[in-house]
Amino acid sequence: MFRFVLTRVSLVIPTFIGVTLLTFALIRLVPGDPIELLVGERGIDPARHAMLRAEMGLDKPLLVQYGIYIWDVLQGDLGRSVVSRKPVLDEFLTLFPATIELGTCAIIIAILLGLPAGILAATRRGKVFDHTVMGVSLTGYSMPIFWWAILLILLFSVKLGWTPVSGRISVMFWVEPVTGFMLIDSYLSGEPGALRSAVSHLVLPSLVLATIPLAVIARMTRSAMLEVLSEDYVRTARAKGLSPLRVTWVHALRNALIPVVTVIGLQVGVLLTGAILTETIFAWPGVGRWLIVAVGKRDYPTLQGGVLLVACTVIFVSLLVDILYGVINPRISRTR
């Protein structure tokens, strides 16, 4: 097991180096001079320009520059935003919990709805329920989620007035950011109605973000279940006289879950992509919206650092899923 974890971790290192090369190249590929990009649109006098160039090591060979970059990154120095002048890492860390909160709620919704829908569709193969689930999930999979978000706002916020349109909590509440997770913080604040307000702000964005993972999980569960249900051991279980419920939910489900768990792990990237759009529409103060704002303001250090951090998150989570997968399914960790 230890060997397995070690191989997995060692495989991640080249990917990490590759991503740093990409973000390192990013700021040098942007047309224009890096210094001018860093100071923004205010302009700079030539003497100060040359001094900054030397200070930042931009007069050194590229390889040395990359070495300095990597060294800084490993120490947690990802540069400063040219707009807010704050370190990129600090900004990321204050905003990241909002994205995690949204993403976690979305994936929970997706699993809670997608898994049973897929299982029931498989057991009712070819029936109306199966066709409905498949049709709905293909539609969800094809959905431009930014438009889906607008539709939901139109229905639930504008027409019905059930949910607020943007933000994480009503402006009437001021909640001490203890954990950064609004659900927990608003609960801890003890103010009556704060938690309720936080939940109502969270519902629509997480539904929107859950749409595509939900569709993928439902489809995957259905096909995995269909495959398992046709296997011999399931027939044996049926022949023994076990109840259909027990055969489906206990015997078949356990094996069908293996590919489903992988697919759920792969949704992290999908969630982060979705978060960019969802957060932009709902004015959700998370990492996705932060990156879009950075692009709009040509805040390249923020974009550079943010992209690296998001990529590291994806790499880390996939590594975690890989290892967990080996724990759940010992056949894998033993064969490698």
């Binding site: 590759g18 942007v30 960019i276 990156l291 998001v310």
Partner: peptide, 16 residues
């Protein structure tokens, strides 16, 4: 490496 970045984010970086 390309797959380590969420697709839309990579596209945004390239457009940026």
């Amino acid at each position: 490496i390309m797959l380590a970045l969420p697709a839309l984010l990579l596209a945004i970086v390239i457009v940026a």
